[in-house]
Write a protein that binds this DNA or RNA. Structure first.
Lengths: 231, 231
DNA sequence: TTTACTTATAGTCAAAATGACCATATATTA
DNA sequence: TAATATATGGTCATTTTGACTATAAGTAAA
């Protein structure tokens, strides 16, 4: 979120905006905040803010995310800079877009002090946002769709322990497609990326599925020996 | 290249640096410029400069590339922002790294007025660069290695018409690996991405190979019908 | 003018991976 | 006990891959 009068200590004209994806009940969501002040008060926007003088770009993104939504310690990556001359109304502002993947259920949203609200929206049902934020969001979603097929980042959207069906539904939601259950399992099994937790799902009204976890260290090891993640 | 005293009209503290890859004689190269003025005079750097107030980030990258090296109309894409607080000596500067792919033989390098020299270097034999430019270069090379396998961008490094062996050597240079000639051809043939120009290579001291060209429109069409580039 | 050398291009074949299925198991709820 | 929902495992024809082999078409050297 970009307030109108940035404090003294920041690099003017350079902001950060975060496209934060969450996943719940088979739906891919996006986190938005409602501005509490300034000319865009009352409008929805991507969470964001200004980079201060003494912090790195990535540190700034982490700090802003934490202060605006209460979310910390998540998968966060730079997306790209958006810098059309007139994208911001009162002056020239270039924004660095980040994108983040979080397990929606692990966090209760805490709107920061310049935001009156923070809320998850279905990625296919997003309101009009301020400035070029809809464009940034679209770019982020396209990026996710592509990247999720070539790198094992999807796991960041799930709880630490998940079932194979949850994983499949995640991919189906992101890629907007249907996958064959049996073939999906076979492929994942062959990759040897998942650890069987030797635990069963609980409180479900059907046969309980085995829980798996993704260990990044395994992936790093497999990568070094030539493994390529493709789905 | 970042001169020390930026002109009035720019967004201070936001620069652009370009990682420009070229390909020639089976070698992957990188374009560097030698600074002519300022405290980094005489040192090699990535071509770059300042974003001015009225232009978009991508326009700025194009303009800088043209003015520093004479290169225009090429594959150019944003890489990421580098923004460690102390990466630049005299003040806080965040730089937007771009990366570009050009056919080395199509351009004669024209050093811009703040550069005393512009020169191609083998990507594995790069001198020490100013600031964090070596780090930016490494990031760019890793990015290229990954992206070239999942999107047909490699063609930008070749002339418009090329042989299958040239294409294979390009991939071998980027990925630092050997590929089986026959299997490589079979794979490319199956993708239907290449148009046979019905022409033969000239001035070679062996059997001349057929020339092919890559037509981006074909790729766009195939993509829409579900084709995925994987190599 | 024959032979060596270089690269082009085509083909073989077993192994592995894929896509479209089918079958059975294990749990809950009516 | 039956209906149901999901889990899990398996079949099989087809496609793709990886590792090779074979032949063709040129140039250059003997």
């Amino acid at each position: 979120m970009e307030s109108i009068n940035p404090p003294e200590s920041i690099i003017e004209a350079l902001s950060i905006d975060c496209v934060i994806f969450g996943f719940k009940d088979g739906r891919l969501d996006i986190l938005l905040v409602k501005h509490a002040e300034g000319i865009s008060a009352g409008k929805w926007a991507l969470p964001g803010g200004w980079i201060t003088y003494g912090e790195s770009v990535d540190e700034a993104a982490k700090r802003l995310l934490k202060s605006l939504t209460g979310i910390s310690d998540i998968y966060l990556e730079q997306l790209k800079a958006f810098g059309e001359p007139n994208r911001f109304p009162t002056k020239r502002v270039v924004t660095l877009a980040f994108y983040a993947l979080v397990n929606e259920e692990s966090y209760s949203l805490i709107p920061g002090f310049t935001a009156s609200d923070a809320q998850w929206f279905n990625v296919h049902d997003v309101p009009q946002l301020i400035y070029d934020h809809n464009q940034i969001l679209d770019f982020g979603y396209k990026h996710l769709k592509h990247k999720v097929r070539h790198e094992p980042i999807g796991f960041n959207l799930l709880p630490a322990k998940f079932t194979l069906l949850q994983l499949q539904e995640l991919y189906e939601a992101i890629l907007e497609t249907k996958l064959d259950k049996s073939n999906f399992r076979r492929k994942l099994a062959k990759m040897k990326l998942l650890i069987n937790c030797k635990e069963k799902q609980k409180d479900v009204s059907h046969r309980a599925a085995a829980l798996y976890k993704f260990d990044k260290r395994i992936y790093v090891t497999l990568r070094k020996s030539g493994m390529v993640f493709e789905l």
